[in-house]
Design a protein around this nucleic acid. Structure first.
Lengths: 187, 187
DNA sequence: GTCTATACGGCGATAGAC
DNA sequence: GTCTATCGCCGTATAGAC
């Protein structure tokens, strides 16, 4: 792997674990096995490096969500949405989704606008994909037509936020899913 | 208000907004209108100040949860749990619950153990209070007896985590609550 | 592109006068 | 208890040799 790619990959992990201010250029360099100034040969400064991380994570998030929700092996909305919930949570342990969550939920004030602008596209696209699944499920009777798409959407996204901010507590998703599904299926 | 109390109150807000490393002693001093060394007359160092914040927040969290769940004006489990969910979320904008969440969900690695030990009591006590409400509701038929207390507990706590980590998205709690309650009430 | 050496600023913390 | 002045450290970032 090229140095530039190593830098990005390790930076994502370190930023996810320690935050922006908690991650020093020295610690990134050490992790890769180069010296600090080498980083500046590939990225103008710390902020530029961080922005590249945001872009990579944003693209991966879209790719990941699309792959699951358009997977031909997953037939029902229930299968698709459950798999997405579970896999997002598993991604937290790979330090990728936790990067997304950390900076989405708790952006450092001075980076807030940059982060929002870089992650907005992923957030919008993923929301749209999920909304389409829900619409279809309401129409074909898999979910209760007495509920609006917005109501289901808010609930599902709340589950996603909940499970992804505290992984260890939710090693068993089945309970959470059971209650949610009782709530959205036709009575 | 005494200087010592001013320090704690402003520190909680600043730590909640900017994290531990993102909050300098200088910024706390400036916010209060004193100089940096004055802080050290009241707290031994930055960590000791932070630990005092943790203790205050932990106590307030217990007090707050107890007040709602034991409120004689709230009669049903549904009223109590809905009120708790909503008010926790509103507390985020007062920078108190967001302090709790920030350090509970994303503790800086070197402070992880200290934070857990200081917030453990609040977490355990609040969980117990909630579990009792749920048990009672399952027993008196307000919730479906085919669901276990654990299943409902996981789901409710997931909602709490979800709504409190992203306040702006959930200004309308009714949708989320509607789906949850359909999920737990008797069929 | 990578290194050694270094500039410069902000940080936590302290000394000592009032 | 509060201040001014200052220390030592570590952070980002750069200069310049190889």
């Amino acid at each position: 792997m090229k140095t530039k790619d190593k830098i990005i990959n390790e930076s994502i992990k370190l930023f996810a674990e320690n935050g922006f201010e908690g991650t020093s250029m020295a610690s990134i360099a050490k992790q890769i096995g180069v010296t600090k100034p080498s980083l500046y040969a590939h990225y103008e400064n710390k902020l530029a490096l961080f922005e590249s991380c945001l872009e990579k994570i944003s693209n991966e998030q879209i790719e990941f969500t699309t792959k699951i929700l358009k997977d031909p092996n997953l037939n029902t909305a229930e299968e698709k949405l459950f798999t997405l919930l579970k896999d997002c949570s598993l991604m937290v342990s790979e330090k990728k989704y936790s990067f997304y969550n950390r900076f989405y939920f708790l952006p450092p004030l001075e980076l807030k606008e940059i982060i929002e602008s870089k992650l907005e596209k992923a957030a919008t696209m993923c929301d749209e994909l999920i909304a389409n699944i829900i619409k279809e499920a309401v129409n074909n009777g898999e979910m209760d037509e007495q509920l609006s798409v917005e109501e289901i959407m808010y609930s599902y996204k709340c589950l996603m936020d909940g499970v992804s901010c505290r992984l260890d507590t939710y090693n068993n998703f089945d309970s959470i899913w059971k209650v949610f599904w009782r709530g959205v299926k036709p009575l």
